[in-house]
Amino acid sequence: MKKPFAIIGFLIFVTFLLSITRTVVLNSMATAGPLLAKVTNDLSHYESDNAILGEQVYAKSSLNNIASRAEKMGFVNQKSGFSLTNAIPIAAVR
């Protein structure tokens, strides 16, 4: 019976190759950790900044804020009706 040297050799080679691959991948993942943490932190930071800016936009565009600023600038309330959209056409009046 012929001994399966080729198969045994192949299996040893595959085992060795997979070990090397595993070491490389783990090593790569280990060094990518700080990068991943940085990306996560950056994302969290941007989300916080976005929320803070959103809050400022809402506060500045509130009607209470706009009305008080308008009053300071001398704007007054509209006293009479004026409409460009709902006017009755002359033809319809006749």
Partner: peptide, 13 residues
Amino acid sequence: KDLLIYYGIPPGE
């Protein structure tokens, strides 16, 4: 009055 002006409803309606 404020609402009629705001909604653009002219007098006569």
